[in-house]
C-alpha cells in the first residue's frame, strides 16, 4: 500500500479524506488496542487532517496520541458506568 500524501487527500472530498485516514490509522491502532481500535480511530479522526498525516509518518507521535485517546476513552467509559449504576 502506497503512503498517503497531502495531495492525495486534497484530491478527495472531505468525507472521503477522513475515510482514507481512518483506513490507514485503523490497522496501526488495532495492533496496539484490538478491542478499542474502532473507537480510538473514531476519536483520532476528530483531529485535523494535516496533523493525522504527520502522525501516520511518525509512529512515536501516533503512539502517544493513541495512549492519550485510550486514557480519555477509559475515563469516559467509567463515568458512563457510574452514571448508569446510579
Amino acid at each position: 500500500q502506497e503512503p498517503l500524501t497531502a495531495s492525495m487527500l486534497a484530491a478527495a472530498p472531505p468525507q472521503e479524506q477522513k475515510q482514507m485516514l481512518g483506513e490507514r490509522l485503523y490497522p496501526l491502532i488495532h495492533a496496539m488496542h484490538p478491542s478499542l481500535a474502532g473507537k480510538i480511530t473514531g476519536m483520532l479522526l476528530e483531529i485535523d487532517n494535516s496533523e493525522l498525516l504527520l502522525m501516520l509518518e511518525s509512529p512515536e507521535s501516533l503512539h502517544s496520541k493513541i495512549e492519550e485517546a485510550v486514557a480519555v476513552l477509559q475515563v469516559h467509559q467509567m463515568s458512563e458506568v457510574s452514571h448508569k449504576s446510579n
Binding site: 468525507q15 490509522l25 474502532g38 480511530t41 473514531g42 479522526l45
Partner: peptide, 26 residues
C-alpha cells in the same frame, strides 16, 4: 442536548463509509 453522550466516540470500521463527524465548518 449535550447530556446524552452515550454514543461517543463514533466507531470507525474499515470498509464502512465514515460518517462520524457531520458538518464540520472549516
Amino acid at each position: 442536548s449535550k447530556s446524552s453522550n452515550a454514543s461517543w466516540p463514533p466507531e470507525f470500521q474499515p470498509g464502512v463509509p465514515w460518517k462520524g463527524i457531520p458538518n464540520i465548518d472549516p
